[in-house]
Amino acid sequence: MTISTQSTTVSNGVNTEALIGARGAFEQTPEAAQFTFHSTCDWIEGTFNRNTINSYFGLGQNHERKRTFTIEADHPEVFAADDRAPTPPEIVLSALASCLTGGVASVAQHRGIQLRSVRAVVEGDIDVQGILGMDPDIRNGFSAIRVRFEIDADASADDINALVAQSQKRSAVFDILTNPTNVAVSVA
């Protein structure tokens, strides 16, 4: 079955034409589709640290943004920290929510669905005995992650469910969390 792309005046603020154009271009030159993202983390004090994010590599060259972004992380008081910023796992949850929410907007635009509001509520369960090294059978990371979407849009329940499903199918962070990745850590 095809999903017809409607040319109505739906506007979710996503330029899907540009994205589809990019797909065409990458088919011709797959090298241009090779991106590398960076984040640089500096320790400040205790568990408090700050990431700065600016340049990335893609389309065969390095790109400098006009703005440098920062993401800080810390731990809450129950872990004897100062709670100056969210914990890294919470940042991971927010990355998942952002990725899926952006995906919902893009897919909705492509399918001609006008969104009025979208909210994703994410929860992740962690048994901290894992990070504390108390029980080797308990993993450090989330044992389960749940995302609940609340979406108000001009579409049937099935169409909305399809938006959310397609967004997961095409999400980088969903993939990162659901599939293993080789991680190499070295010391300069």
Binding site: M1, N161, A165, K169, F174, L177, N179
Partner: peptide, 17 residues
């Protein structure tokens, strides 16, 4: 992969379409 639920949802939606 931890994405079984979504693959099932996609498959159900596709069948219903």
């Amino acid at each position: 992969s931890g994405a079984l639920a979504n693959n099932c949802a996609l498959s159900d939606l596709k069948m219903n379409r």
